[in-house]
Simulated scan of single mutants.
Amino acid sequence: MHVALIVLILTCFGCANFTKNIGTGELVKNYISATFSPVMPHEPLGPEHGLRFDWQITKLHLDSLVQEGAKWCFPAAVTQAIEKQNRIARELEAGLLLDAANDLLIQRKRLNELDIQMNYVTSEIRCTPPPNQSEFHQHLEIIDQLFHMLNIDNQFAHNSIEINPKYIGQLAQAVNLLRIHKNLELSITGHSDSTGDEKNNHKLAMARANQVKRYLIIFGLEPLRITTKSVGETLPLFEGDSPGVHLTNRRVSIEILSMKKSNTSLFPRGIYERE
Rank of each mutant, 00 (worst) to 15 (best):
V78A: 00
C73T: 09
E68N: 12
I116D: 10
E68C: 11
R90I: 06
E83K: 11
E135F: 06
Q85Y: 04
P130I: 07
Q67F: 15
S123N: 11
R87P: 01
K84M: 11
I125L: 06
E113I: 09
P131C: 01
S134T: 14
A89C: 05
M118R: 01
C127I: 08
T79V: 14
A101E: 13
E135R: 13
L62F: 03
A101M: 12
N119Y: 11
N119C: 08
L97H: 03
S134G: 14
C73I: 11
N119L: 12
E93Y: 03
Q80N: 08
A81W: 02
W72S: 05
A76P: 02
Q67L: 15
R87F: 04
E113L: 09
L98R: 10
Q85C: 05
R126L: 14
W72I: 05
I88K: 00
A94P: 09
M118P: 01
N132F: 02
H61N: 15
F74S: 01
L97N: 01
F74Q: 01
V66W: 10
G69M: 09
G95A: 07
P129I: 04
A100S: 09
H61W: 14
E91H: 13
L97T: 01
D115I: 11
E68W: 11
A89N: 04
N132H: 09
L97E: 04
Q67P: 03
A101L: 09
E135H: 09
E93H: 12
I88V: 08
A76V: 14
E83F: 06
N86L: 00
E83P: 00
L105K: 15
A76E: 04
R90S: 08
T128V: 15
D63S: 13
L92E: 02
K59S: 11
D99N: 13
A76K: 02
L111W: 08
E91V: 03
K59L: 14
Q117S: 12
R87W: 05
S123D: 05
A76M: 04
G69D: 07
Q67W: 14
Y120E: 06
A94S: 15
T122S: 05
V121N: 00
E113G: 06
E68T: 15
A76D: 01
L97R: 04
P75E: 08
Q107G: 03
Q85F: 07
K84G: 01
D99S: 10
I125N: 06
T79R: 03
Q117N: 10
Q85E: 09
F74N: 01
G95V: 05
Q117H: 11
I82N: 00
V121M: 09
E113P: 00
A94N: 14
F136S: 05
N86V: 01
P131D: 08
L92V: 11
E135A: 15
D115R: 14
L104W: 05
V121Q: 00
F74H: 04
S64H: 15
V66H: 09
L60W: 13
A101R: 09
S123T: 07
L104C: 05
T128G: 02
V66N: 06
S64V: 11
K84D: 03
I125K: 13
K59D: 08
W72R: 04
T128H: 10
P75T: 13
I82H: 00
L104D: 04
L105Q: 14
C73D: 10
N119H: 12
L60Q: 14
P130Q: 00
E68R: 15
L96H: 07
Q107M: 13
D99C: 04
R90T: 12
Q85L: 12
A77T: 06
A77D: 07
